[in-house]
Design a protein around this nucleic acid. Structure first.
Lengths: 112, 112
DNA sequence: CATGTAATAAACCAGTTGCTTAATTAACCA
DNA sequence: TGGTTAATTAAGCAACTGGTTTATTACATG
């Protein structure tokens, strides 16, 4: 899978609140499918599919423990997202620079 | 639109290589629809729809200049993505800590 | 006014997504 | 061996996505 396809899969996986909630839960530690499903009202197969999407995007990894399939976060895919967004950091920092300039200008003109 | 719905829209918008390429182009400065479409092989209406998706996700803003509709990046939505990912920073940093521990252990056992 | 240019709208289509219920697989346990 | 628990597969369905082509709107200019 190319770098672009990988980002496609990661962002598509993140574009769903149930899946983001699953990731948030996994940030607190490994969990099985049933445990992950517990907070949600939807069926178990639905959760199973969400987990498959997260796994295909390599946002999580899975183990095997008897009839359990424990899930854990894969930090590197999350880091990919952070790195992608960081590309644009200079853009929002530039915006703050403009605001700073305005604020400085307001300070300099003592018309209060 | 709730915070969750907004993130849904932002991530869904980013889950497409054409739209990410459009953002990358806009990082270099404002551009019209035709200019944005130029590098791609697809039809103009297709690009127009991609732009609409980016606009709905508030990843871009649009102006009006005669018959042109110039697009520019909206830094704050990109910052939202960075902030979301930063939530998980402690997780990948913890992983590096483990690697550091292993490296330290290797140093301490002078079996070289 | 007539023509050209920028962009969007409308209608359509194939493929994907997100869910459901019912059936199945796999492992444990008594 | 037979029953229980964990999880996935299968089949089906409505809604959404990403593209197309054709038609339309809006403005500019000779």
């Amino acid at each position: 899978m190319s770098g672009t396809e990988k980002l496609d899969a990661v962002f598509a996986a993140l574009a769903n609140p149930t899946r983001r909630a699953i990731l948030a839960r996994l940030a607190k530690g490994e969990a099985t499918v049933n445990v992950l499903a517990q907070p949600f009202e939807m069926s178990l197969p639905a959760i199973s599919k969400h987990i498959r999407v997260l796994e295909n995007a390599e946002l999580i990894e899975r183990g095997k423990d008897a009839q359990f399939r424990p899930c854990r976060l894969n930090p590197s895919a999350l880091q990919d997202v952070a790195n992608w967004a960081e590309q644009y950091r200079h853009i929002w920092e530039a915006r703050f620079d403009v605001m700073d300039t305005v604020i400085e200008a307001m300070k300099d003109s003592n018309d209060d």
